[in-house]
């Protein structure tokens, strides 16, 4: 006998009215013993007076007999042992690499640090509302592990960076979470921008030989899977505006830039670097100028790097400009 749950399904079956006005689905339900007692009585009453429906029920009973026989004569497990053997052989080949993950409460908010045997794969800002969400799809290819000594080492190095002790993390990167070859190219170029220096999105686009792809460059940087180590925070708008960081985290971009000695000011268009207080380095010709140098217009804007201090410019191997003599003057 069927439960109550199925009782209230039956009245909704009303398709396929027969010439006699009765419902064919009720006859099917009767042969399958899926009716309620009340409906069963109704069917019985109808069958008593309708010969064509009696024939129909007989046909359905006959069909059931054939189907039962079909099921009984067909071995539904034939071929399974071989299928399982093949599967086991395949599974043995599919060993997923390890991904060690740990959340670190950094000075700029929670960061999810992840590494594989190949290198650092992930430095992710964990948004407050995201704490409980387990990132799924992208991680399916990995065997997840919580923390581990290697991740602790990475965190120690990041602590050094935020203390101002370490300027170069010198990590190996696993590019597994990068989305395209274009993004890899962009991030590769960005990785070359030194500590305490900023360049524009245009400059990166020029570097990779795709001067018109400025917005694509910005998108590629927005989805940088290894921020801080690959310094997308050192890339800004052509007008000096910080624009964005990992979506809407521009305040974090400000903090990190200030940590590297880059002056950031609030303008009416939002946060921007204080270009008037920074040296301008010419990346191709390897020399640097004061921001008021008369030679600035002679060079392409995309070639500029903004450098926080003279020491840094000199450490990068830039020589002082012959015209404005940044080595002989100090910023006030």
């Amino acid at each position: 006998m069927l439960g109550n749950k199925e009782d209230n399904i039956m009245p909704t079956i009303h398709a396929h009215s027969l010439p006699c006005g009765f419902t064919e689905d009720l006859l099917i339900a009767e042969t399958l013993a899926e009716t309620t007692p009340a409906l069963s009585q109704q069917v019985a009453a109808h069958l008593a007076s309708c010969a064509s429906c009696r024939t129909l029920v007989e046909r359905y009973r006959g069909l059931q007999t054939h189907l039962h026989t079909l099921a009984a004569t067909d071995n539904a497990q034939r071929g399974l042992p071989q299928a399982r053997q093949r599967l086991d052989a395949q599974l043995a080949l599919h060993t997923r690499p390890r991904l060690q993950v740990e959340i670190w409460h950094s000075p700029v908010g929670d960061l999810r640090i992840g590494r594989t045997a190949k290198g650092v794969a992930l430095v992710e800002f964990v948004r407050p509302d995201e704490q409980t969400v387990v990132p799924t799809q992208r991680w399916n290819e990995f065997t997840l592990e919580n923390g581990g000594l290697e991740v602790q080492t990475l965190i120690g190095q990041l602590e050094g960076y935020f203390d101002g002790q370490t300027q170069d993390l010198a990590w190996h990167v696993d590019d597994v979470f990068m989305r395209s070859d274009f993004q890899r190219t962009v991030l590769h170029a960005t990785a070359e921008v030194p500590y305490g220096t900023v360049v524009t999105y245009q400059a990166i686009a020029d570097t990779i030989g795709q001067s018109k792809a400025v917005r694509a460059v910005a998108q590629a940087l927005r989805h940088n899977p290894v921020p801080i180590h690959i310094p997308c925070h050192r890339v800004i708008g052509s007008d000096g505006a910080l624009t964005g960081y990992a979506g809407n985290l521009v305040d974090i971009k400000k903090k990190i830039l200030e940590l590297e000695g880059i002056p950031v000011v609030a303008t009416d268009k939002g946060l921007a670097i204080a270009r008037g207080q920074m040296y301008i380095g010419w990346r191709r010709d390897r020399y640097f100028c004061l921001p008021r140098c008369t030679t600035l217009k002679e060079q392409s804007a995309g070639d500029r790097a903004f450098i926080a201090s003279r020491t840094r410019a000199e450490a990068m191997g830039y020589r002082p400009c012959d015209v404005c003599h940044p080595d002989l003057q100090l910023f006030s």
């Binding site: 071929g79 071989q82 399982r84 599967l87 395949q90 599974l91 599919h94 387990v134 991680w139 399916n140």
Partner: peptide
């Protein structure tokens, strides 16, 4: 047919294996 059933069996569990962690 056994041939197709075996292929699909393999595909089903390999797919499941990839997504199982999530």
């Amino acid at each position: 047919n056994v041939h197709d059933a075996q292929d699909l069996f393999q595909d089903t569990f390999l797919r499941a294996h990839r997504a199982y962690a999530a």
